[in-house]
Computed example of a mutant assay.
Amino acid sequence: MNVDKISELNVCPFCNSDLSENSHRCIKCGAEKVRGHINSRERRKINILRTLLILVLGIYFYYFYPLSGSFLFAASLVVISFILSMFIPHYIFKLKNRQNIIWKRKNIPL
């Protein structure tokens, strides 16, 4: 369960226990403040952006591979591009949402 708005008071939104002023975690229930939270709608945008980047890079390397002389060079460019296309969208949205703070509690099985 997530609570999207942070209360201005120093009270845990899940168990209503008092928290210290600079506390980022509730001692009683384990809830914690998460800074830079990316919601499910934003995660879908990240996945779409990743897919588009991989598609564009795949097309680029398919058409321009014969122009490069070395297979090792082309393979290393493909690997580096794939890794960057996985991380860059995530960090863009993380920076965009850095002011988005929520309280989150992990579900603990009984």
Rank of each mutant, 00 (worst) to 15 (best):
V34H: 00
R41L: 14
D4C: 13
E32I: 01
L77I: 11
L52N: 08
L52S: 07
S81Q: 15
R50Y: 02
Q99G: 00
P13K: 10
Y65W: 08
H90G: 02
N10K: 15
K94Y: 08
F64E: 08
Y91C: 01
I92Q: 06
S85R: 03
L55E: 05
I102A: 00
L72F: 05
D4F: 13
I38K: 00
K45Q: 15
I48S: 11
C29R: 11
V79K: 12
V78D: 00
L84M: 11
D18W: 02
I27T: 05
M86G: 14
S70E: 03
I88V: 15
Y62D: 09
Y65L: 07
I6L: 15
F93H: 04
L19K: 08
F71M: 06
K96R: 13
W103R: 00
R43T: 14
A75D: 08
K5E: 03
S85P: 12
G36F: 00
L84T: 13
P109K: 12
W103E: 03
L49Q: 14
F61H: 13
L110G: 13
N22R: 08
I101H: 01
C12E: 08
D18V: 11
K106P: 02
S76N: 07
R35S: 00
L53G: 15
L19Q: 13
F14K: 14
K5N: 10
L49R: 05
E32M: 07
Y63C: 05
I92F: 12
N47C: 10
N100M: 01
I101L: 02
L19G: 10
I80N: 03
S40I: 09
K104Q: 07
R35E: 00
V3S: 09
Q99E: 07
R41H: 14
V78Y: 03
Y60V: 01
P66V: 02
F61I: 06
I6G: 07
N22A: 06
S81I: 15
K94P: 03
V79I: 15
K28A: 09
N97E: 10
R98I: 07
K45A: 15
K94G: 05
